[in-house]
Write a protein that binds this DNA or RNA. Sequence first.
DNA 1: ATGAAAGCGCTAACAG
DNA 2: CTGTTAGCGCTTTCAT
Lengths: 338, 338
Amino acid sequence: MSALSDVARIAQVSKATASRALSGNGYVSAETRDRVVAAAATIGYVVSSNASSLVTGRTRNVGVVIPHINRWYFGDVLEGIESALIAAGYDLTLYRLSSDAAERRRVFEYFLVRKRVDAVIAVGIELTPHEVGLLGGLAKPIVGIGGPIQGIPTLSIDDVAAAALVTEHLISLGHTSIMHFGGDQQSEMDFRVHSQRLAGFRQAMDAAGLASGDDTFRATELSMPGGYELALSVLADPRTRPTAIVAGSDEVAIGTIVAARQLGIHVPAQLSVVGIDGHELAPMFGLTTLAQDPGAQGASAVEQVMAELDGESAAVRAWTPYPVRLEVRSSTTAPLTA
Amino acid sequence: MSALSDVARIAQVSKATASRALSGNGYVSAETRDRVVAAAATIGYVVSSNASSLVTGRTRNVGVVIPHINRWYFGDVLEGIESALIAAGYDLTLYRLSSDAAERRRVFEYFLVRKRVDAVIAVGIELTPHEVGLLGGLAKPIVGIGGPIQGIPTLSIDDVAAAALVTEHLISLGHTSIMHFGGDQQSEMDFRVHSQRLAGFRQAMDAAGLASGDDTFRATELSMPGGYELALSVLADPRTRPTAIVAGSDEVAIGTIVAARQLGIHVPAQLSVVGIDGHELAPMFGLTTLAQDPGAQGASAVEQVMAELDGESAAVRAWTPYPVRLEVRSSTTAPLTA
DNA sequence: ATGAAAGCGCTAACAG
DNA sequence: CTGTTAGCGCTTTCAT
């Protein structure tokens, strides 16, 4: 493997000059630079990022911690982050956090701390103050996606408002028997997203004077199979079946629709369903959903990180709700007495 | 940031001894090791992987190149790789390759070469001999997933046989008018997967004496919207509509089913559909599909890489077909005259 | 079993 | 504008 010294020797300059010529830092005469660049090209020289990082303290690499890869919302966010990072010339090191606490500790206390990453983006994970402190102590920027984290900038929609909005949509259609298929309230993993969406749902129901008690909420994994299984069991009984469902995610919504159709329930004539993610596949299913843009949120997070890395650390340390709008489609929601 | 020298000073040993105690390489008396470990713990010492990599030449990091993140098959493979890597104490650096040739070159000639990764796993991407040579010249192990690559070990199913199998299934059900909704034959990205599946389809059709000409094949992006759009246009005309579809992926299959139902076509009474990936969501849709296990393939790839990294470089340099079986479900395929 | 010393490959002052 | 010098933090002979 050729080193900088080889380039220097061939170009007949010192290592320092070669370094300057290649990195673009510092003055180098045009002709010298050309010689150096040519020399580097002929021997196929590429910097050793290790050596370079060791002295500069910068790795041009950011760590991304995320609970799932193969879920619509998370996959979209990840793609958005990936594109933005590559465009900025940064590497992306991926850590999937399971609910296993020991593994989580290992990621934070070992993997993320070894001077391997310049910054961390946490997607859909509520960092503990301890974890924030760990990274913060190393002066590594952190930005979150998916919900407020104490003391660091976070991008997310206003989940309470979002859930309230879709619920109101259903109510405005004349529905009175509405259920929320949401995330497990115990799950530490995904922020307060679950509880906030439930809160928004209840808020809208209460405001309309509708029942919002325990039997209007059922917890499930926020996945297609999750929604499917739950819907199969809840919708089977025609006497207790609601006329509308506020799904905790688009995947849950689709799962619910598939199950309903399988039970012979007509969507939307007999059951209206709304989602919350605004995934690109939603239109295909005609799903009425909130239009948040996960990919764009990922890209914004990268922007934030880059800004902080460039010293603009006075960035927004507070949470800013990401704007959303309700995308109304005809095929999964309908007036109650259409 | 505390360094090894700090640990050494506190434990009252030399840096060399501290290093040995912490890494477990070389002789250290039990009591000395305890002192060192304790010292490291109190100041929260973590090795700088840069410094360590610089001298050892090993990064404990593997690069993964993959064309999509948010597709069932690829997401599953990626999850499998991630888990296996973390378990082995390795980091995973993710590169999504678009069809942009310039970007692809940049990834191979810049990102992957800077002594940042110990090995590369290429998923669903046919590496060129040049790319293989690039990494090979650096003595970095490469393993592929998804199809044969010249000169390196690759994991994949036998796509010709797989496509033939699902096609035969349809034929055995009495279908004679069968179409293949597969991947674009021009796409360089995804190996020969597309053409191989088409070949398998034609092989089975020909063997049964059925028409397998150009009008039995339609190309689409191997995604749900891809399958959906294509099905919408192809299935609309009842006079030319086939009775069965061999989908190029599970996503295409689902998209096709959704479109068919939307057109009022009953699946499987009027249209039978088979997929090829065996995704975990297939059962939910009752999809008849091949059972390949993408996650397991990812894990196997990691095993291969680790073996090569441990010097067992005499590993299988040839392609070994990954075993599959056909999972027959009742709801998306049926005898023609049921 | 432990320590001293020599780098790994590069960048960043500081002179000139 | 270019060269000299001094490390970045760690591992690894080679002595002891």
